[in-house]
Simulated scan of single mutants.
Amino acid sequence: MRLSAASVFFLACLALSGCTSSLGPDSLAAGVPSRETTSSVTRPSAPVPETAVPSADVGEALPVAPRQEELAWAGPVPQPQAFTPQASVAAAPSPSERPVAAPAPMAPEIDPAPRTRSQIYGHRFRDVKPINFGSSSPRKLAVHGVDVSRWQGAIDWQKLRTQGANFVYIKATDGGDHLDPMFRKNWRDAKQAGIKRGAYHFFYWCRTAGEQADWFIRNVPREAGALPPVIDVEWNGESSCKRRISPERVREKMQVFMDKLEKHYGQRPIIYTAPDFYRDNLKGAFLNYPFWLRSVAAHPSKVYPGRRWVFWQYSGSGISHGVDGRIDLNVFHGSEDDWHDWVSSAG
């Protein structure tokens, strides 16, 4: 059938419109992470000061990893050699297969400041609920420190240092989308006070390990002289994530997270844990990783028999000049010389 000129023109327009994509820029963008947040510390009754976080400091949004977990290898978790503070990161055994690396988030430039031995201040903390550890008292060890989060509020870091805070671990991130609002201020002020500091991440069992590693890397600077990053793994009733996965899955997720941090920071991460979580998931595992053990009623040798450790959190009820309320107290496993040697090798 012969078509009129008007009909030909109409059909041509219809064909062109059918070839036009219905996917605009918004529909092609990757999905954003869940905004669900977690909390690793019981909230106090008194209000805590917030610190505004400039959006320019965070950087561009990261690509969101697929929801399917990437494992560090295909097979069971290896049982490597025991950790020693002087052990080189490069000497540790490597899994046979690694996950595909995600695009590296932007990180601040490494601070090339010269490393010098910092002064060690004696322990002057008090404890609301002191424990008699007998001959194995942490007071007999030379290098004490603290860990803090937003719940300590505004801190006088110079005063806290002279009370015996020779090192501090600062809460940085939870899960894949929560940044402690005091992290940047605490990170900056602790350095200005001359305190050796590192950052820790509270691991969230309802998010992929890759997302959580990217979030930590996005927010925690890579700086010369900083202590190794910490992964905090525990069962926490205060968290919005109530999932308790199998021990094998726990270790798989931890390995993915720690592999990404080690590659980015060039430091082997430290594992912080508590007695029940350790018993359920970590006994006999990760022998070539440094451990930070919570043990507030007995020496770690009794609570974690056979486990080597670098830090011991011996109290959650410390009090000190320079900070309002209670603060966690920790100690390094070694002498002053051991501390300086460990800091030098870990950095």
Rank of each mutant, 00 (worst) to 15 (best):
D156K: 05
P105N: 03
V100S: 01
D127K: 00
D127T: 02
D147H: 11
P112N: 09
P103N: 11
S149A: 05
K159G: 04
T162D: 10
P108K: 11
P108R: 14
E97R: 10
G122V: 10
S118G: 15
L141D: 09
T116Y: 13
V143H: 07
H144P: 01
R161A: 11
A154D: 07
R124K: 14
R161P: 03
P114Q: 01
R115Q: 12
S135F: 11
S136M: 14
V148R: 03
L160E: 03
P108G: 11
P108T: 04
K159R: 14
P138M: 03
S135G: 07
Q163H: 05
P108Q: 10
K129G: 00
H123F: 13
N132Y: 07
M106A: 14
I120R: 08
N132C: 07
R139M: 14
A101Y: 07
R124D: 00
E97H: 09
P99Q: 09
W151Y: 15
K140M: 14
G122T: 13
F125C: 05
V128E: 12
A113N: 06
A104P: 00
M106K: 14
W157D: 02
V148G: 02
H123D: 06
R115M: 07
D156F: 08
Q119S: 15
H144M: 08
D127L: 01
I155M: 06
E109Y: 08
A102E: 01
A104C: 07
F133G: 02
Q119V: 12
H123A: 02
R124G: 12
I155K: 02
T116G: 15
V146L: 07
K159W: 05
